[in-house]
């Protein structure tokens, strides 16, 4: 699904990503973890073509990034989604959810859209202006929007930041259900204690990729190499 080979990126003379090799297979639920400024979001921005790496190759759904055109197959929720939303913004949730179909010139499956609206508990808000939404409602709206075109790959950059525990719990349950349906998911997160067994792969990134492998292997790796890391919570968290 995604293949990253020897990716290196410099920004303002600083090495941000160094010789990254990463493979995401179809059906993976990959959690990318690492410290602030470790390059997690930057790696995703390279994969999505927002930043051009100085070295290395990226393949998306089997095609080199430069030849990739099926962007509707990728759902993306950026970090701090909605931060630029102006209080005057007169877009209703319904209009907001239709945006991807306009951008990518693809028809929406109305039945599926209704299902998404239901899953994310947005039915009562459908005709409301999104500028009046709370942070949690806005996050749900952004994630729902990333899903409306039935993407094969969903990329979420710290989607649950600012959500309370109950909201986080239901959010990860929803993600889990989409993964069970066969969707490939990449999740950047700091909430390692919330990563359940649904996450089958973990990548640990801090400029270099220190670890990339199965969830179980990561727990062993963390115990040996990351002193103080609460790996037991990763392994045994149940809601």
């Amino acid at each position: 699904m995604i293949l990253v080979e020897n990716l290196t990126l410099f920004l303002n003379g600083k090495t941000i990503l160094e010789d990254i090799n990463l493979e995401v297979e179809k059906g993976d639920f990959l959690a990318i973890i690492g410290p602030n400024g470790g390059g997690k979001s930057t790696l995703i921005r390279c994969i999505l073509g927002f930043l051009k790496p100085h070295k290395g190759k990226i393949y998306l759904l089997g095609k080199p990034l430069s030849d990739f055109r099926d962007w509707h197959l990728i759902g993306y929720v950026p970090q701090r989604a909605g931060k630029n939303l102006n209080q005057l913004f007169p877009l209703t949730l319904k209009e907001f959810l239709y945006l991807p179909s306009i951008w990518y010139k693809k028809n929406l499956d109305e039945k599926y859209l209704e299902e998404i609206i239901e899953i994310f508990g947005l039915k009562a808000l459908i005709n409301k202006k999104i500028c009046n939404f709370s942070f949690g409602q806005l996050q749900r709206a952004y994630i729902a929007r990333a899903l409306v075109l039935k993407p094969e790959l969903l990329i979420l950059d710290e989607p649950s930041v600012g959500l309370d525990f109950i909201s986080q719990k239901s959010f990860y349950e929803i993600l889990s259900n989409f993964h069970k349906r066969g969707m490939t998911i990449i999740l950047i997160t700091h909430e390692t204690w919330l990563i359940t067994k649904e996450v089958n792969k973990v990548a640990c990134l801090n400029q270099k990729l220190y670890f990339h492998g199965a969830h179980e292997e990561f727990c062993i790796f963390a115990e040996k190499n990351l002193p103080g890391f609460d790996f037991h919570k990763i392994e045994h968290t149940h809601w």
Binding site: F50, P78, G82, N84, L85, W103
Partner: peptide, 16 residues
Amino acid sequence: KDLWLAKCFEEEIPGI
């Protein structure tokens, strides 16, 4: 118009 509108609240959209 759709891209101008997108620019009001999105910094980057994949493939756009």
